[in-house]
């Protein structure tokens, strides 16, 4: 039994596997399957200042080794989250990363300020949602905008701040450095890649939003590459994600530079995926004589 614990921004995680924001809601749907205390942490559903209804359906399409989604940040708003969802989540004996988003830097800052007075462990600022018209990816695709929104949120909270980056950029390292310079305590990547599918019969895009975010095993090599690039470009820790389906995938992303790993699409497919991935990572570490998961981070030996 290897030591699976990792430490990020002074926060202890019992293991490095975290359900990614969006697939796990606020956790309660999964409690019928297992106690949430088995998880390293939970990145909660992206929450905005006001309630959002989300995009028209269809919101999902299967793709080769992956899926597209365009939920459009449907959520009940930060006040509901803090009053109704957060108290229970904080009693679950796991690290809670409150994922937040907004249309403007001010909205993001306002949401962060409200969370600052709660006991939430970390804030994950989403500057990379591809499915909303304002804010979202618009923040994450220019260094200036990414820096501006990070600065605004940094001023609003003393909580450990993780900024979640978009892969839909020419140079993710430039964005990463801009966000780090404004005080991000950690970075998480990658959000989904912008994609599109068309129904040949109707000539309509399958998603009502026309475009959506691609996730799943199809994007895993992109995630490995970007985690590696970013981990080499910044000093703050990196939380990796993008198509992780197995314990070996998690180990690979950690070798590329991730200190912990988020799991998204695998959970849409199988509610037990995070537990299976934790066990598989543990078994892989044991089989390879590695005493601690934390030792893996950044140990890739590039040519």
């Amino acid at each position: 039994m290897a030591d699976l614990s990792v430490r990020i921004c002074g926060i202890d995680f019992k293991n490095p596997i975290i359900p990614a924001s969006g697939v796990f809601g606020y956790g309660k749907e999964y409690e019928q399957y297992y106690p949430l205390s088995e998880l390293g942490g939970i990145a909660t559903k992206g929450t905005t200042g006001a309630k959002r209804t989300g995009n028209l359906p269809p919101r999902v399409a299967e793709t080769p080794m992956g899926m597209l989604n365009s939920v459009g940040l449907q959520n009940p708003g930060i006040d509901h989250f803090i009053a109704v969802e957060l108290p229970h989540l904080l009693s679950c004996d796991t690290v809670i990363l409150a994922n937040i988003a907004g249309s403007t830097p001010d909205e993001c800052a306002e949401v962060a300020a409200k969370l600052d007075s709660t006991d939430v462990h970390m804030i994950e600022l989403n500057i990379s949602c591809p499915n909303v018209k304002q804010g979202g990816a618009a923040f994450g695709t220019s260094c200036t905008a990414a820096a501006e929104v990070t600065r605004a949120v940094r001023r609003a909270t003393k909580k450990p701040l993780v900024v979640k980056l978009s892969p839909n950029v020419t140079s993710i390292t430039e964005i990463a450095k801009a966000v780090e310079a404004e005080g991000a305590d950690a970075l998480s990547l990658i959000n989904t890649l912008l994609g599109m599918r068309i129904d040949l019969r109707t000539r309509r895009p399958i998603l009502h939003n026309n475009m959506g975010g691609l996730s799943g095993p199809a994007v895993f090599p992109v995630a490995v590459r970007m985690v590696w690039q970013v981990a080499n470009a910044v000093k703050v820790p990196v939380i990796g994600m993008g198509g992780v389906m197995s314990g070996e995938d998690a180990a690979e992303l950690m070798m590329a530079g991730a200190s912990a790993v988020q799991v998204g699409t695998a959970i849409v497919q199988d509610p037990y995926a995070p537990l299976r991935i934790i066990d598989e990572l543990n078994a892989w570490l044991d089989a390879n004589g590695i005493a601690s998961a934390a030792e893996l981070t950044g140990t890739v030996r590039p040519w």
Partner: peptide, 17 residues
């Protein structure tokens, strides 16, 4: 009927107005 994801109400893709 709607195109569906998790099936348990977490991922919010199978929206119905």
């Amino acid at each position: 009927e709607e195109r569906m994801g998790c099936g348990i109400g977490a991922c919010l893709v199978c929206a119905c107005r």
